[in-house]
């Protein structure tokens, strides 16, 4: 008798487990982990009606430019020098560096400070749009589209026509140096 009871008990327990399991299966929602393709965060800014993106690892901060000291006898892409909390930073206008034939001068007062190791410059922008995640495979490095930009300084363009800069190659002394 007792044996039978024990058996029945075991049977009920198994049944219970099955029911619970079934309920749990019904309740459990698939963990909707959104699929994120490998990529990086970029700071996106506008310049001469084009959108540019710079890897956030190289973007130090966005500043509001109050006044810039123009330095005579420098190439056109050097806008001047500004004082950022007491230390001097060179301000660069990429339009001239990239020879963009866009004549608009939008009066934005925002500049993006770029840092590559010890090297620091501020880029004039028409507007800093914000942060954006861009996946690696979204970037096309089709250089016929980007014919007007030097290949080594631009790593590609994405579907939204944002031009992805290549900071390690562009923002270094050898490239932007003025040494007369």
């Amino acid at each position: 008798m007792s044996e039978y009871l024990a058996h029945e008990d075991a049977g009920r327990k198994a049944l219970e487990r099955n029911i619970l399991k079934h309920r749990a299966m019904l309740l459990a929602r698939p963990t909707e982990k959104p699929f994120t393709p490998p990529g990086k965060q970029y700071v996106v800014f506008e310049l001469a009606k084009e959108k540019f993106a710079c890897d956030i690892a190289f973007s130090d901060e966005v500043i509001v430019v109050k006044s810039i000291l123009t330095i005579p006898c420098t190439p056109q892409y050097i806008v001047g020098v500004l004082s950022l909390r007491g230390s001097l930073v060179t301000v660069i206008d990429l339009r001239y560096f990239f020879n963009m034939q866009e004549k608009t001068v939008l009066g934005s007062d925002r500049a993006l400070v770029i840092k590559n190791g010890d090297f620091r410059v501020a880029l004039l922008t028409d507007d800093v749009v914000g942060l954006q995640y861009i996946a690696h495979d979204e970037i096309q490095s089709n250089h016929t589209i980007l014919y007007s930009f030097p290949k080594e300084h631009v790593s590609g363009i994405n579907n939204e026509r944002t031009i992805i800069l290549n900071p390690p190659s562009l923002f270094k002394r050898e490239i932007l140096e003025v040494n007369q």
């Binding site: 330095i71 020098v81 001097l88 090297f119 620091r120 140096e177 003025v178 007369q180």
Partner: peptide, 8 residues
């Protein structure tokens, strides 16, 4: 002058 203005 700051980088990249080595000598102006």
């Amino acid at each position: 002058l700051p980088t990249p203005l080595s000598r102006v």
